[in-house]
Design a protein around this nucleic acid. Sequence first.
RNA 1: UAACCUGUGGUGUAAUGGUAACACUCAAGAUUUUGAUUCUUGUAUUAUAGGUUCGAAUCCUAUCAGGUUAUCCA
Length: 665
Amino acid sequence: MSEETKSLNFIEHIIEEDLENGLAKDKLRFRFPPEPNGYLHIGHTKAIGISFGLGEKYNAPVNLRFDDTNPIKEEQEYVDAIKRDIVWLGYRWENELYSSDYFQKLYDWAVKMIKDGKAYVDSQSSEAMAEQKGTPTQVGTNSPFRNRSVEENLDLFQRMKAGEFEAGTHVLRAKIDMEDPNMLMRDPIMYRILHAHHHRTGDEWCIYPMYDWTHGESDYLEQISHSLCSLEFKPHRKLYNWFRDHVYEYSKDKYPLPPKQREFARLNLSYTIMSKRKLLKLVEEGVVSGWDDPRMPTISGLRRRGYTPNSIRQFIEKVGVAKRENIIDVSLLEFCIREDLNKSANRVMAVLDPVKVVITNYPEDKEEWLEAENNPEDESAGFRKVPFSREIYIERDDFKEEAGNKFFRLKLGGEVRLKNAFIIKAENVVKDSNGEIKEIHCTYDTDTSKKVKGTLHWVSTKHAIKAEIREYDRLFSDEAPDGHADKDFMGFINPNSLTIKTGYLEPSLVDVNVGEQFQFQRLGYFNVDNDSKPGALVFNKTVGLRDSWAKQKANPKTNSQPKPQQKRSAISVIQQLGKKYTNLPEEKQLKVKAEIQELANDVSYEELEPLFGTALKKAGTRIAVLIALKRLLKNGLERNDAIDDFINKAKDDKNELLVAEALDI
RNA sequence: UAACCUGUGGUGUAAUGGUAACACUCAAGAUUUUGAUUCUUGUAUUAUAGGUUCGAAUCCUAUCAGGUUAUCCA
């Protein structure tokens, strides 16, 4: 058994370090804390994968906590959808919890903070407070209410809770430092008045705690060891710690573990948007059919599109975890779903853009049922029968009257194999009045042992069943639709992101179930859509097969993107070789030396001279320069003062290799 | 012109002071009853410049570039 020692990401390194420093392994605890104000999308999957993945790795509990402190935006519908999606992804939470469960505890702590002079009621307008807040480059100023007495603060806060005041008239603020360079520390708001109905607490509360005052304290109450969130919360960490340290003082006997927040870079996918607000706009404006439209990057959209939980988990694993901003190429997601479906999806034949083929030497009334393998990647998948007859459909793309020999498909006079069936030869075509090909007349040959270049999929016309086929393209035409300050993301919407076709399928597909997945051979992976009914089948194209032929067609000449595969200049290679020179074993040094000498033939004196000033410490580089210089001299370069200086300096160096080279001149 | 964070092939992630590795993409080739799959091969001044060290992607300094932070949102 080879133990796979996978490299750790930076969060795992932190955890390992904490463990080494005495944190008991059974104290490890994580959480996933969505706000129930929208559907989960592929970006959330990263956060889910990190926290739940850590739970699996360390056998530690992971809580699902709904961060529901803003009753105006949150709804039960979203809670249900989020739970459904996490379950579908295959993760299990230890406890289903709500920040709103902690409202009373939070309130009690807030009262303590007031009593300790750490919080005060501010009765200014939000504009006035914003004014006093300052800017990132300018310190803020204190509120006139900052020094209210404890008694007054207590009284006001209790009356806020009792519902005596209108929204916006008072807030509770932490008393920290209006001059802190971190703006979040400038007396942040802990509570605001909101006369709104909460989806869980109803009308019990009319003051609601803010994120910063809720999140860390919820972590603390749940004794979360590592609170993981995305990078934009980094500035909140200082405040997270400030609040935490205070409540820790109040409750350390009961809750001994102070959690720590760490931040990772969120996931960005090329050609997609991740903001819930913007996704909501697509739904509301009818650009897509709903949150689960197969073009949406939501979990429910991906599910409907045919992505499997396994493929998404694989994707998240491959994406990794780090702290730098990233844009992951959608091709990685596509790779993951293809890899998964390649092993699991049964192959079938379907023609989406049909042209009729008549096999003239096949009897009119004959039909035979040929054996076809369901999945060559999975021996247990077995075989099925497909009907063959005199008239079949093939793809219009698969025939050309005339074509070069790079075209492996059917052409007049050419032979091609029909998958699972015979070899046919195109004899002539029948066209309509517009010159459009109506029928291709072929002859067939039952000798299937011969070698032909192409193999086509096909469907017997009289046995074919029709189905609606929905093909999707990316929703946006820009790689980073919301990455332009000057242009709105709605301007990049691809008007052709959905195409609907009628497909002709082999009859084995009559009674498929919603969600079932297939590979339509040579076309891609398809699944049965929710809208599908017996007799009125609907398929979604999940993803196409890799198609190197299409790529070749798209750019017939050379490579499409002539990558500036610029050859590095000889001088830069010499510099690089020199950098390592002194560390190399002797035999390698000889090899490198020869290489430098060779490269030096392409180097001009003008390129070399600036390197004479190389720092004394960089003996390797200077050796390389010296070797190159010698070659230049040998090639006829005249010596000058600069050269002599450089050589003399080398002779006096403490590096023996350099001295040896210098003396050898 | 603030504070904080981040710079490793086209993309993403490793290497925790000791030969820059893995995956995807792309390209070329082999195999193939899917132009798929599978298999081979190829692609890097570790942002730049100094410094510390026998040895630096890694530590220090400066510079450059990008990002984040000013909702009674989370």
